[in-house]
């Protein structure tokens, strides 16, 4: 199983989440892909430590100067962007029949080109 890091801290009181707070987080983190649900989870798991000047309640209430609020937001752990790419598995040791298939096709093509000339011409036509 693959796990992305969570904060592992005690959950905060239910965030008084509203659209503007989430928009603010998306803007500061430059992550428009983060959905409200993900941000709600990230906020509920976020630990407000001594390194941020704003207390949890003040932050959630929308208090504090923009740079103080940005500082709090930049200490949040959010999941990485989910944008999968397909990665087809290439067989590097295919069976001989598949490996020789292009050769066989080429050979058939050559035969096809040569075959009309190999046809026996009837004698009367030759004489003509």
């Amino acid at each position: 199983m693959t796990s992305y890091n969570d904060t592992g801290s005690q959950p905060l009181p239910e965030p008084r989440g509203n659209g503007s707070l989430y928009e603010e987080i998306r803007h500061v983190l430059r992550r428009p892909d983060l959905s409200d649900d993900i941000l709600e989870l990230a906020l509920s798991e976020h630990r407000f430590g001594s390194e941020t000047l704003l207390a949890a309640d003040a932050f959630l209430a929308g208090k504090g100067r923009p740079e103080e609020r940005a500082r709090v937001i930049r200490t949040m752990i959010v999941p990485p962007p989910l944008h999968r790419l397909d990665m087809p598995s290439h067989d590097l040791e295919p069976p001989l029949s598949r490996r020789l298939a292009p050769l066989a096709t080429r050979w058939q093509r050559v035969l096809h080109m040569v075959r009309p000339q190999m046809k026996r011409t009837p004698a009367p036509a030759r004489n003509r």
């Binding site: 992305y4 500061v28 990485p80």
Partner: peptide, 10 residues
Amino acid sequence: GGRLFYRHRD
């Protein structure tokens, strides 16, 4: 936050 990620595979 938002640009440093940690992922662990079991």
